[in-house]
Simulated scan of single mutants.
Amino acid sequence: MKIINLSYDDYTIQDMKVFKVDEFQWTAAPSLLHALAFYDEQVELEVFHLQDIEECDTDDDGMWGSTEITDGEQEAYEQGKLKIYEPSKSKMREMYDPQKPTSGDYGVFSGELCQWTSFSDVIKRQEVGTYVIACTEY
């Protein structure tokens, strides 16, 4: 029996990937095997979970976050000086002309100012490892 080594010694930040592991959570990891092992620790991985896991494009896909919002940006928002991203309200329009946010776009969620950041930019601020990078449940 071969034992699989899940250490991080052979990986760099450039190796990091993001996997959408279910409808609520995205996991950053240097490999799918790392992501699966981590997910198994959290929810006891079952075979049917495997069909839902997908690798994201770390440059194109990202997340909304409020931790990097500066006082100046918050003040500009309160004064109505920031352009706020608003997703399409029409399902037909979204299908033919998707309005995806891009890095740096601002949005407001539950009254809180947030900024869209690509997964690759978030990963650059972290160390190599396996962790939940984004979650829609809090």
Rank of each mutant, 00 (worst) to 15 (best):
H34M: 08
L36M: 14
F38Y: 15
F38G: 03
Y39N: 07
D40E: 11
D40M: 05
E41D: 13
Q42D: 10
Q42W: 06
V43N: 06
E44D: 11
E44W: 06
E44Y: 09
E46H: 01
V47S: 15
V47Q: 14
F48A: 10
F48W: 11
H49P: 00
H49G: 00
L50F: 07
L50P: 04
L50N: 07
Q51V: 15
D52G: 13
D52S: 05
I53Y: 02
E55W: 01
E55K: 05
C56V: 00
D57M: 02
D57H: 08
T58Q: 10
T58I: 15
D60G: 01
D60N: 14
D61R: 13
D61L: 11
D61A: 13
D61E: 12
G62M: 07
G62S: 06
G65I: 04
G65Q: 11
G65D: 09
G65N: 08
T67V: 07
T67P: 02
I69H: 01
I69E: 01
T70L: 12
D71Q: 10
G72Y: 09
E73D: 08
E73G: 03
E73C: 04
Q74Y: 07
Q74W: 02
Q74K: 12
E75Y: 08
A76M: 08
Y77K: 11
E78H: 15
G80K: 06
G80V: 06
G80W: 08
G80T: 03
G80F: 04
K81M: 15
K81E: 15
K81L: 15
K83R: 14
K83D: 04
I84Q: 15
E86K: 13
